[in-house]
Simulated scan of single mutants.
Amino acid sequence: MTPSADSVSGTPPKQRQRRHEPDRRERLINVALAVIAERGVAGTSHRRVAAAAEVPLGSMTYHFAGMDELLTAAFTRLAEEAADAFDQAMLQARTPEEAVEAIVGLITGTVLNRPDALVATYELYSLAARRPEIRTITNAWMARSRAALERHFEPETTVMIDAMIEGLTMHRALSLDPMPVSTVREAVRRITTT
């Protein structure tokens, strides 16, 4: 074996520096959501997320015991971010009319309708339909949404509004001819004024 130049010169070989990244787990969760939005749950793997995050594959197994843990963390993040945005929108409403407009804005605006977030949300719904343990994420999300709505409406009404928000958001996202904002507003008013 031929000695390396470093061993001949007495200089110690250079070691690859480890990048110190204290928030790597959080970044991996965000990257996982982007991969889920791009490739779906079925196309998401530790290897794909590691490549997209430009980290060693071992970093994935260090932070997540398996795909179930990664998916749970990613979908929990997605649900919490959506619930936070929903909560903020409802907190800003001071009157029943402002609450109606906040709901219309949630359905028709960008808060819940970013294309990547919508696709990831539908992936979450699909996974929750197949795996009851994932429903804890969707149930926690619905509970937060309803709590935000209950600042303005009766509990029974909040259940209807929450379901309507989900349905109208999905309808508008998938329709080639989305329901106009005026129709969304009328639908919200009909439920909230009964």
Rank of each mutant, 00 (worst) to 15 (best):
H152R: 02
H46D: 04
S145C: 12
A148P: 10
P96S: 10
V41R: 12
V31N: 04
T61W: 14
A89E: 15
N30D: 15
R114C: 04
A99P: 00
T44K: 03
L118G: 03
Y122M: 14
M160F: 14
E154I: 12
R18V: 02
A65M: 10
V159T: 13
H63T: 12
A102P: 05
G40V: 02
V181G: 07
I134H: 13
T192K: 03
A140F: 13
A173R: 05
K14S: 13
E154A: 15
T194I: 15
V119D: 01
R94A: 15
A148R: 05
P96W: 14
A85Y: 12
R16G: 10
T193C: 01
L28F: 06
H20M: 09
T169Q: 06
G43C: 00
K14R: 14
L112P: 01
A128C: 01
M179N: 05
A85Q: 13
E166V: 01
R189L: 06
V8Q: 02
P115E: 01
L112D: 09
A34H: 11
Y122G: 04
T193P: 07
T110R: 11
P13I: 12
T76H: 07
L168W: 13
L106I: 15
I165W: 01
L168N: 04
V100E: 04
E133S: 15
A37D: 11
D6P: 08
T110S: 09
V49A: 07
F86G: 05
L149R: 05
A74F: 14
A147Q: 11
E54P: 02
D177I: 15
Q17F: 03
R135W: 12
L91K: 06
M142E: 07
L70W: 08
V188A: 07
